[in-house]
Amino acid sequence: MLDFPNAKINIGLFVTSKRADGFHNLLSCFYPVQWMDALEILPAAWNSFDMTGLPVPGDPDSNLCLKAYKLLQQDFNLPPVQMHLHKVIPMGAGLGGGSSDAAFALRILNKLFELDLRAGALEDYARQLGSDCAFFVRNKPVIASERGDVFMDAALDLKGYTCVIVYPGIHITTAEAYGSIKPSQPDCSLEMLLKQDVKVWKKILVNDFEKALFPKYPELPFIKEKLYEAGALYASMTGSGSAIYGLFEGEAPIDFPFPDHYLIWKGLL
């Protein structure tokens, strides 16, 4: 069974407090975009897992797709499977690619072996794999809170807008991003901010990680400024970086003044 785990962008991201468990509470709008990996899972005589596409650092045995399989295997005694992941979404970019792979692995296994797990149950499993994994179970716009795993439907529809995502190849770890952040509460509710016209988001919607990471990585504010110069109505870093996206009304420019090693994705929302 083949499926295509997609990325997400963060529209506004506020780190509101540090938790007793060492994690942070946040407030953000998660919005799906169609920059996609490919994940195939088939029944097999023995378990196997392989990857193509972008290189993924670390031990393949620790991949979240395998962890998703092992999580369900404990409860449902799943037979062996063959997994193949073709990686297209860059890592350390704030796009949630690894989390999406894990959630889609749960979704595929649920269908493949007819486990009849509903969305809520799949989200509970996904929360055990990572903070934003659960978002990709339903895969629709939400306002996320707490660790990024508590959701409220977002009344936000960006159909007709073009999203351009620029990844400069800078891998920012979660620990690095959160290490210099100072939690604070937003002045206005995110729900109210999202109701404003996209044309004014530039003045009111922020990603708290930009303040901490832009001085350290000057390429990031450069990308953001170039997206605005190209006509973006709103541009922001997504997640804890380092990808920067711009929202364009209608079509977006074809050419951008970025180095060849940058990964650039463009698509309709």
Rank of each mutant, 00 (worst) to 15 (best):
K140W: 03
K159V: 05
I264P: 14
V88F: 01
G246H: 02
K224N: 00
L247H: 05
L72A: 11
K195G: 13
T174L: 07
F49L: 10
D75V: 05
I264S: 13
G267Y: 01
R107I: 13
K226L: 08
F256K: 08
G58Q: 03
L115S: 03
H261A: 02
Y167T: 01
L156P: 06
P221R: 00
A144F: 04
A243D: 04
S62A: 12
G120M: 10
M237V: 09
K111T: 14
F135N: 07
F248K: 04
A7W: 03
S48G: 06
D59Y: 09
N10S: 07
Y262D: 06
F14Y: 08
N25H: 02
K140C: 09
F104W: 13
A252K: 04
L71W: 06
V206Q: 11
A243R: 09
V81G: 13
F113V: 14
F136M: 09
Y167L: 06
A155L: 10
E114K: 12
E40Q: 15
L13W: 05
P90F: 07
C163L: 08
G231Y: 00
E210C: 07
A93N: 11
M237Y: 06
W265D: 09
Q196C: 04
G250C: 01
V137G: 00
Y31T: 02
I223G: 06
Q82L: 11
A119E: 04
Q74N: 02
V142A: 10
Q196M: 10
V198Q: 10
D21W: 00
F49Y: 12
W201T: 12
D208G: 08
E191K: 10
M83S: 13
N139T: 11
G96D: 11
D37G: 06
N207M: 03
K199S: 15
G239N: 11
T238R: 07
